[in-house]
Design a protein around this nucleic acid. Sequence first.
RNA 1: GGUGGGUUCGUAUAACGGUUAGUACUCAGGAUUUUCAUUCCUGCAAUAGGAGUUCGAUUCUCCUACCCACUACCA
Length: 520
Amino acid sequence: MAESRKTRVRFAPSPTGPLHIGGVRTALYNYLYAKQHNGTFVLRIEDTDSNRFVPGAEEYIIEALRWCGITPDEGVENGKIVEEASSRHPYGPYRQSQRRAIYRRYAEQLIENGYAYYAFDTPEELAARRAEAESKGETFIYNQESRKTLRNSLTLGKEECARLLETTTGWTIRFKMPENEVVKMDDLIRGHIEVNTDTLDDKVLWKRSDELPTYHLANIVDDHLMEITEVIRGEEWLPSLPLHYMLYKAFGWQDTQPRFAHLSLLLKPSGQGKLSKRDGDKLGFPVFPLRWVSPEGEVTRGYREDGYFPEAFINMLAFLGWNPGDEREILSLKELSEAFSLERVIKSGARFNPEKAKWYNKEYLRMKSDEELAEAYMPILKEQGVDSTPEYAARAISVIKDRASFVADFWTAAPYLFVAPSEYVAKDVAKFWVPEACGPLEKVRALIADYSGEMEPAAIAGAIEGYIKQNEWPIGKVMNCLRLALTGSASGLGIAEIIYTIGTAEAAARVDKAFSVLNQ
RNA sequence: GGUGGGUUCGUAUAACGGUUAGUACUCAGGAUUUUCAUUCCUGCAAUAGGAGUUCGAUUCUCCUACCCACUACCA
């Protein structure tokens, strides 16, 4: 029966801050699963915690998904969360804070059927109980045992409850966890799991603090109402899976209950604990897809701003905890969705490896055309105060591409393709700016100035090398002497590539300049 | 503490119960080159420990160790 339903999955983040790369991976796996099954990928905002709401977080989530190319099919329209049901978004609104009335109805249904109860304990009373238990080295749990000694609709009289419900909003709704029942669960990644309800507590379903449901209630109700077929979420939810199973049962929705898949967490590179925002700052790599500026003005770096291509970022993320089963490593979003399967998702936590991320970017950079890269390079050139054209930039990129991992490397690796050197590395000058090289250099300069052969690196190299060898000059010395004049140092691109890019006239001019500067 | 999950080279991972335990990144060495880089080649390096099942265990079972998550009127 679940098999006959159209695949519908959802990514349901909380707008409590920027989307962490672990969250992006969860969204990605949901997206890949949806695409593979010709299904629908829904975005739902779980903002049932009014205390932790962060302005801008929702917009950040949408923009991050858009940048990654894992755009939702449902729940978002024109970059905004859909607030009303429509033909394209029939399950709206997609923001939980706007679905309060729906949850309230279902919460009451649970009470009427005896699966939940009102609890009138104040936070202070509960805190006192916790402190008391702690002083005895125990842990206080609101469960089938302790609820008998607490103030709730199970222990208080009918009249008393009615009075408390009317005179105050100081109540919560708790799930009445049954005694000694074994919950048998199946996880698409982890297999069969069993838990006894005696080890579970009476979770709050409805909060008094903001008169909104907790995650557990809202989540189950929405997944049911939105006809979600598979729930793919982080491992941190595994401990509450029994509760969710019990909730589906209490509502009588077992037949259409979604299948669950719990993803392992992304760990710090050290392997100790899950990746956090601080790790990025400390270890020098982003943990967020996009730059984030908190309401307080704190700036956190992002993959986009660090120069990563979204395809590379996504590819890298997909392989953190999954692989296609063959030895391919470079896969487009489309190829990923074709190859994806939850069965091949790794159970254990994956340590994040920044080196591999860089490698992925390099691979993608190489696959892009010089023209495409030139477009991305232009803003950087402008920033450097260089006035150039996309055509010239593309030519420069063609000779420097192999030594770059990021577009920004084009500049740092060879600014001399755009600007003549104004300084010369002293160490290299001492080694190569010597008479036995400078003498021949004058002749080579003339050769370059008069060069009329093909403007191709190979042809230029052939002409220069042939000339030097023919005259039996020390080739290493002369070439490095030339490079020194052209670039300001004795390391870098091949001579021919440089001349091919900057042109023979500019090359000759740079040799002249070197003579006048270095021979003073 | 309790409950649940996890454990293959440094990292990410592959391996119908039968392989010299493979691949990629990193690192080291070499070749090519006018330098640096690229490229190519080579190398280093792993089944957490202990029982059991089996002709045979990385793979199945149990125990131990370690790691992680959860244990909120947060998600």
